[in-house]
């Protein structure tokens, strides 16, 4: 090897090593900067969960980590631990909002940007001992709007390739410049690491702060999936293999008022086949409240159409 290529490769090595150090510093700075808006929430046994100081005096958390409604504390980046009140929960998007006295603490810098597959991200949390935690990875899948299994509307499908650890749900999705670009949770899609985009969080926060809940459509029925017999399917020319049998009907509820009875089998709503209870949940978003929905029903071996006026789900205490 000639000496000139020796010195060239040596200076290459020096530049590449410097690049790694520079990236490392950027990531540590991003974690520190985003950490100024990440809080620890004490609302469950043992280990605190993470949350994001989203608007002044309001923090968002992953709803499934907020295990109690009262006696909640929040540990802040300035070291204080203060009392917090639960403003509301939306299990359909796994978001809960807590209110607290922020003092001079500024909320997170949130950026609603379109995340792309391959974008590098950090998940920044605050947990035991009020310490920051971080894990590093990339956006592994990104798509359009989607509905969670509980019927919640999420504006962008964002799946992450980051390590999931204690404190991940409720942690902040952070870009390499330290800006918050989402709320992380593993409670929306069978334990997968997902992020909720800021537009969705903003919408839910608005609802929870103003009304204390997110409105959901309501029919007033209890149901179970049931397999439709072959001969019936053939006779009535039904393509679906299952439906939802009504095992309870609230007499004053929307379905009861429309004449549905115990034993009726719900086949479709507005032409959309109902195979199980999740399909019904998905159909009953806030936009359906007060609207009529056409239900295809099987009763005593014959099919009929019933129009139901969708009501609003009453708030249940937890």
């Amino acid at each position: 090897m000639s000496s000139s290529s020796d010195s060239a490769s040596a200076s290459n090595r020096a530049s590449t090593a410097a690049a790694l150090v520079a990236l490392s510093n950027d990531l540590a700075n991003a974690a520190e900067r985003a950490g100024q808006g990440v809080v620890a929430i004490h609302a469950r046994h043992r280990v605190p969960s993470s949350g994001i100081h989203w608007q002044k005096g309001a923090a968002v958390a992953a709803d499934h980590t907020v295990k109690r409604d009262e006696d909640i504390q929040i540990s802040l980046p300035d070291g204080r631990t203060v009392a917090a009140t639960l403003a509301g929960r939306d299990p359909s998007t796994d978001i809960a909002v807590l209110k607290f006295e922020a003092g001079s603490l500024a909320p997170s810098e949130v950026l609603d940007s379109s995340l792309r597959v391959g974008n590098l991200v950090l998940a920044v949390s605050r947990t035991e001992g009020n310490h920051l935690g971080a894990s590093f990875g990339a956006i592994s899948a990104a798509g359009g709007a989607w509905r969670t299994w509980r019927g919640g509307q999420i504006d962008q499908f964002v799946r992450l390739d980051v390590a999931i650890y204690v404190g991940f749900s409720g942690s902040a999705l952070v870009d390499p410049q330290g800006r918050v670009v989402g709320l992380n949770t593993s409670g929306l899609a069978r334990g997968l690491a997902m992020a909720i985009p800021p537009s969705t969080v903003n919408r839910v926060v608005q609802d929870l702060l103003s009304k204390g809940h997110v409105s959901r459509g309501f029919l007033g029925i209890g149901m179970q999936p049931v397999r439709l017999p072959e001969d019936l399917r053939g006779r009535l020319k039904l393509s679906a293999e299952t439906g939802a049998i009504l095992v309870s009907v609230e007499p004053d509820g929307p379905a009861g008022q429309a004449g549905l009875m115990l034993g009726d089998v719900l086949l479709a709503l507005d032409g959309q086949p109902i195979r199980d209870t999740d399909d019904i949940q998905a159909h009953l978003g806030p936009e359906k409240i007060g609207k009529a929905v056409a239900a295809s029903v099987l009763r005593g071996g014959a099919s009929l159409q019933v129009s139901i006026q969708v009501g609003e789900r009453p708030r249940r205490g937890r």
């Binding site: 790694l20 990236l23 990531l27 540590a28 974690a31 520190e32 920051l132 935690g133 894990s135 590093f136």
Partner: peptide
């Protein structure tokens, strides 16, 4: 610092010369 890049080397499952990278989660 939290967020800093770290690299591990070793022999996971006896595979020599293996390298893995991540960040400091917490100390």
């Amino acid at each position: 610092r939290v967020g800093e890049l770290v690299i591990a080397a070793g022999c996971p499952y006896g595979l020599r010369g293996s390298v893995s990278a991540g960040v400091v989660h917490a100390i």
